[in-house]
Simulated scan of single mutants.
Amino acid sequence: MSHPARRHSHHRHAREPDAAGFVREVEHACEDRALRLTPLRREVLELVAAANKPVKAYDLLDRLRERHASAAPPTVYRALDFLLEQGFIHKLESINAYVSCHHPAEAHQVPFLICDVCSSAVELCDEGEVADLIETQAKALGFRAKAQTLEVHGVCRQCRSA
C-alpha cells in the first residue's frame, strides 16, 4: 500500500534521540502495511536508529556479530534492502552509509546536509520544494526519475566552531 508524502512545517530535524520510539513507529507502519519485521530486520533497524551518525553496513555487521557470531554480509544487506525499500531508513550513497528516517510512515524524498569532518547528517524537511523542482525539470527533459536523494557536503556548525 502506498502512502502519500505529507507536507511538513519543520525545515530541519536534529537526529532523534529516541531510538526506541522510532522502532515502535516502524513496527506500527509494518502492521499497517501487513509487512513482516523479522527479528533480524528489527535488530538492524535498532542498530541504525541507535547510531548517532550515518553507519556503514560492515559496522552494522560487526555490531550484529556481537549477538550472532555467524552473521554474514548478505544477511545485513537483505535487512537493509527491506528497510530501504519500505522507506524506514535512507542510504547516503556518497558516504555509503545508512541513517534512520525521521518520517518512516510516509513516502518522501529529502535532502541531507553531510559534514565532511564529523560525518554527521541532517535530514532537511523542505516541504518537497527541492524534490518537486528536480522532478519538474527531469520531466521537462523527458527523464523519468525513479528515486532521488540530494546530498550536500560541507562542514557543520559544531566542526566550524571547533
Rank of each mutant, 00 (worst) to 15 (best):
S94E: 03
E151S: 11
C118I: 10
P17K: 03
E31F: 15
A97M: 10
Y98A: 08
S2D: 10
H28S: 13
V76P: 05
V155R: 08
Q86A: 15
A14E: 07
V117L: 08
T38V: 14
A107L: 08
R160W: 11
D32A: 14
E31S: 15
E123A: 11
R78G: 00
Q137L: 12
E43W: 15
I114K: 06
Q109P: 00
R42G: 06
A20Y: 03
Q148H: 10
P73V: 05
A34D: 07
H10C: 06
R15M: 08
L61P: 08
R67G: 11
D59F: 00
H3A: 10
A79R: 12
L150F: 02
L37K: 13
V26S: 04
A147K: 14
D126W: 07
A34C: 12
L40W: 05
A72G: 00
L47D: 01
D116W: 07
H153N: 06
V152R: 03
V122Q: 07
A138T: 06
P39Y: 14
L60R: 03
S70I: 02
D59K: 14
H3F: 08
S70F: 14
G142P: 01
E31H: 11
A79C: 09
C159V: 03
N52T: 12
G21L: 04
Y77I: 08
H11Q: 01
V99L: 11
R24N: 11
E129V: 11
S2M: 05
K53S: 06
L84A: 14
L80I: 15
V23E: 02
V48T: 15
V44R: 10
R144V: 13
P104V: 15
R63Y: 01
L40S: 05
S119Y: 14
H8A: 04
M1Q: 12
E106M: 04
Y98R: 03
A14W: 12
A14D: 10
L83N: 05
R160Q: 06
P74S: 05
L92G: 11
G154S: 01
Q109C: 07
K56D: 10
P104C: 08
D132K: 09
L133E: 14
R36A: 05
N96T: 09
A140R: 12
E66D: 12
Y98G: 13
Q158K: 00
K53A: 15
E151R: 08
V26N: 00
A107M: 01
C30W: 08
V117G: 02
V155T: 14
R24I: 13
A19V: 05
A140D: 08
